[in-house]
Design a protein around this nucleic acid. Structure first.
Lengths: 231, 231
DNA sequence: GCAAAAGTGTTACCCTTACACCCATGT
DNA sequence: ACATGGGTGTAAGGGTAACACTTTTGC
């Protein structure tokens, strides 16, 4: 492989696709956009777009996130998921797409004020059942779901689904929703409040949710060694 | 974003880079190739190359693996690592590289009979210290090392570093080398032989390594739920 | 007072850990 | 016989899981 010859390699288009998850109404939901043009016109697709000439991949993801949802890095967790580049995944041309996983809190109308008028939250389970998704986006969402589920186990990422200040019960609901299981509220409480580096007390309480006032916490670090209980 | 206009998006070159790890001489080693041309001439680099027009990304990784090392999917574990596309990572042009993690057994002369004459195994620790690596390949290797270390914990991937038939002690040496720790041979033995779906007995034994003959095993499934012990 | 949710105490159980001990080979 | 590594037994300790119980609010 001697020095590069511009005509020696095929040109690709490079895009970013965003798998934006949130927990809303006791369901894990993913942000989708209805395609207005062919191919796959009328189908749901992941938000995303082309990477610009002088733009890093993460920059492109952040930009598209802001353009299509109004969300910023202060609001969400963002990490690279995987890259998809099957030759015919887009029938028009050779497109390689770098997919990003975004975990967002259930903000009020996160898609308002954007140009993506046809964006909406859809329950992940439903979406993967019908699977009338554009391109290979069903696969990408499936991969994102797997990543999200496994990462909750050994990180404190669940807090990314919560507002800045949240209660232990709200955090527990995230785990229960994403994993589709029930957790013992008492053991869960002990577990997360006893994990150093996970939660930081705010000193304030709230009675949203009813019952005895609950302590409000903020997320603290990032990774924690022993996994969160699952039974 | 109306229909695609071929002149509306910038063209990229897309490559694959391979982070091939093996355990050799009690050290985790990575396969590197000395660059013969500018830029970064004379520096060590990861094996890799351009993705072809009608080729899937994984196909490209498999092809490059065979071309540069002679290894095939029957020999190794291969999984996508991450994608790197900083605008100036290659000074000549805009290159997006999809990196793949390869875990290979310590085969006899795996680079023989290939066109990559300057390929050689280098201890990962040394490589990341000097860091006279081409492009952003130090970052890629670091990411690959992190992935390999964490994946050993909750998968049976360690067996990918072993020959087809291996002893429990050989498997243990993989963990000890990759994690840089010592494991209790007796507890380790109980742990792995007691994990259903991890090891399959061959019925044969070997005395390589000395002492009492050791049972030979083959790798069985892929994932196992409880993590391997680390103390 | 009563319902509802927050949070604490307690105990059985299991898995890990540490290490004593026996087994089967080569020399 | 003895060294070397393979493999089993066993008991202490720590974390999990299940659940009784107390606390603090709203209605």
């Amino acid at each position: 492989m001697p020095g590069y010859d511009p005509s020696a390699f095929p040109p690709f288009a490079v895009t970013v696709d965003l798998v934006v998850f949130t927990v809303r109404d006791k369901h894990l939901q993913v942000l989708l956009i209805r395609r207005g043009v062919a191919p796959d016109q009328g189908r749901w697709a992941l938000p995303g777009g082309f990477v610009l000439v002088d733009e890093d991949l993460r920059e492109a993801a952040v930009r598209e996130l802001a353009e299509e949802t109004g969300l910023t890095l202060r609001d969400v967790h963002l990490e690279q998921l995987a890259t998809y580049g099957a030759p015919k995944r887009d029938p028009r041309m050779r497109v390689v797409s770098v997919a990003w996983l975004v975990l967002a809190p259930d903000l009020p109308s996160p898609t308002a004020g954007t140009d993506a008028a046809d964006a909406s939250w859809r329950p992940v389970d439903d979406v993967l059942e019908d699977a009338r998704l554009a391109f290979d986006h069903a696969t990408i969402i499936r991969d994102g779901l797997g990543r999200a589920r496994s990462k909750l186990e050994y990180s404190s990422l669940a807090a990314s689904f919560c507002p800045v200040e949240f209660t232990v019960a709200e955090l527990r609901e995230v785990y229960e929703t994403v994993w589709g299981i029930r957790l013992d509220p008492r053991n869960f409480h002990r577990k997360v409040t006893g994990s150093p580096g996970f939660l930081a007390e705010t000193g304030e309480t709230t009675t949203r949710g009813g019952g005895r006032p609950a302590m409000l916490y903020r997320a603290q670090d990032a990774v924690l060694n022993p996994p969160i209980l699952r039974t």
